[in-house]
């Protein structure tokens, strides 16, 4: 119950901060980019993947979505934590009769909820784009859900780290640079070892089982989240 109230508070704090347009830009932006990609070389791409047009589009979508997902996590985490940093109001927030654990939890749930919304926009946009490109009505829903939501689970550790850094450091240049670096590293994801978290959102591994990075992401992400909230509880705020 308290968490719901806190979420409502957090929602008020991010009003008029252009976070929703940003989420839409992330979710539909990837779709637009893919649309441009197809518009520029429709015939070539259709000939190349005549046997499995949907599967190919989904895998390209996934490839474009991963860097946007990581950059998005960094930016949204910084904006959510930045509300208190910018107005020097950590003391005010924490002076309220709330446990620090739940304040941190609300921020984390908000971050993940916003990214979940972006992933949903991506999924819906992908279906619409596919239909517009006349890839057929034989939509592979399992694959669609896998490409849309499993990367988010696999990126949970990245989100937890970004939120931790953004909350604990006043200078947002540091968490955002970490996010920029992570984005670039993730583009080389395929060459990294299976144990590197920045590879997990690609869902590619030696066992060829996309559920493994997602499960790993969920576990490690929750561990980092717990570590972050313990640190937040003990931290001195300015």
């Amino acid at each position: 119950m308290m968490l719901l109230q806190l979420l409502a508070v957090e929602r008020l704090k991010i009003r008029r901060k252009a976070i929703w347009p940003l989420i839409a830009a992330g979710g539909f932006g990837v779709v637009l980019l893919q649309a441009a990609n197809y518009a520029l070389r429709y015939d070539y791409l259709m000939k190349l993947n005549a046997d499995n047009p949907w599967g190919h589009m989904l895998s390209e979508m996934h490839f474009l979505a991963v860097p946007s997902l990581i950059m998005g996590l960094a930016i949204i985490a910084s904006m959510i934590a930045g509300v208190e940093h910018a107005t020097n109001s950590w003391k005010q927030t924490l002076a309220l009769p709330l446990s620090r654990l739940s304040v941190y939890a609300a921020k984390f749930v908000l971050l993940m909820g916003l990214m979940f919304a972006a992933c949903t926009m991506l999924a819906v946009g992908t279906v619409v784009l596919g239909l517009c490109l006349s890839l057929g009505t034989d939509i592979p829903y399992t694959e669609l859900l896998r490409v849309s939501y499993l990367p988010l689970l696999a990126a949970l550790p990245i989100g937890a780290v970004q939120l931790w850094l953004s909350v604990s450091l006043a200078n947002q240049a540091i968490p955002l640079t970490v996010g920029v670096l992570g984005t670039v590293v993730s583009m080389f994801g395929m060459t990294l070892g299976d144990f590197v978290p920045y590879k997990w959102p690609m869902l590619d591994n030696q066992w060829n089982e996309p559920l493994i990075p997602a499960a790993l992401g969920l576990t490690v992400g929750l561990l980092i989240y717990v570590a972050g909230s313990v640190h937040f509880v003990r931290k001195d705020v300015k």
Partner: peptide, 15 residues
């Protein structure tokens, strides 16, 4: 906001 200009930048850099 610190993050907003960076968000704009990232949106235009990834494409």
């Amino acid at each position: 906001s610190f993050a907003a200009p960076l968000a704009i930048n990232a949106i235009f850099t990834l494409p």
